[in-house]
């Protein structure tokens, strides 16, 4: 049985969106910012952010980490979950409406397509962050660990199938999985969040990653 939460009013993280468009410290041009705001408003009107999740015990069988139907030998996830007795598995999406905005631009307007992609991704990140903040309240006195998704490090994308078997996000919030293991709506995320007795440092999600040259890497002050 999975549970659902809706986030009709999501904060917009502009820095995140600009980073996806390639800006790091540089200040974007006025025209770019004005256009970005127009596209943002359009994406916001179209999106319907929602999350479905389950809480499961963390177990190990031999070399395998077992989170209900999700089984993996991923060392990265084991490290992430070390010391956690429970975890939450969730699927989050900003909804199909955002894909319709994207699709409209994809055929005829690469500028606004790129912007809508960046904005959608930023909203999806914010949705996950907001959900994890709620989780922190809901799960107190336990602390949520940084979320960990299929495709991170050695946690294979094929775990998506197990996520879907467990969470039924098709039915709960309308996320489907295609044959290449990609999700529709495209701005969707699945992840594991360990519940730990001790708090962990902020931004550990990026700090733990081995790819230090990634343009999307969060800086310590983010």
């Amino acid at each position: 049985m999975s549970y659902r939460s809706y986030y009709p009013r999501l904060r917009f993280p502009p820095k995140q969106a600009l980073r996806y468009l390639g800006y790091r410290s540089a200040e974007p041009e006025r025209e770019v910012l004005a256009e970005l705001e127009r596209v943002r408003a359009e994406v916001e009107r179209a999106m319907t952010p929602a999350v479905c999740y389950v809480r499961v015990p963390v177990a190990e069988e031999g070399e395998e980490l077992v989170l209900s139907l999700v089984r993996t030998k991923s060392e990265g996830l084991k490290r992430n979950l070390s010391g956690c007795g429970e975890a939450v598995l969730f699927a989050a999406t900003i909804g199909m409406g955002a894909d319709r905005v994207l699709s409209r631009y994809a055929r005829v307007d690469p500028l606004r397509e790129a912007m809508a992609l960046a904005i959608g991704a930023a909203y999806a990140e914010e949705l996950c962050d907001e959900f994890c903040r709620d989780l922190a309240k809901e799960c107190a006195p336990l602390y949520p660990r940084p979320r960990f998704s299929p495709g991170y490090g050695d946690f294979p994308l094929s775990a998506q199938r197990q996520f879907f078997a467990l969470l039924s996000p098709e039915r709960e919030i309308g996320i489907t999985l295609n044959d290449s293991l990609l999700m529709s709506p495209t701005k969707s995320v699945t992840a594991v969040v360990g519940l730990s007795k001790t708090p962990c440092r902020p931004n550990a999600r990026c700090a733990d990653c081995e790819r230090t040259d990634c343009v999307y890497r969060a800086s310590e002050e983010d």
Partner: peptide, 11 residues
């Protein structure tokens, strides 16, 4: 120059 500006020029 960043991607959005490149695309605005293209437009």
């Amino acid at each position: 120059v960043f991607l959005p500006q490149l695309l605005m020029s293209a437009e």
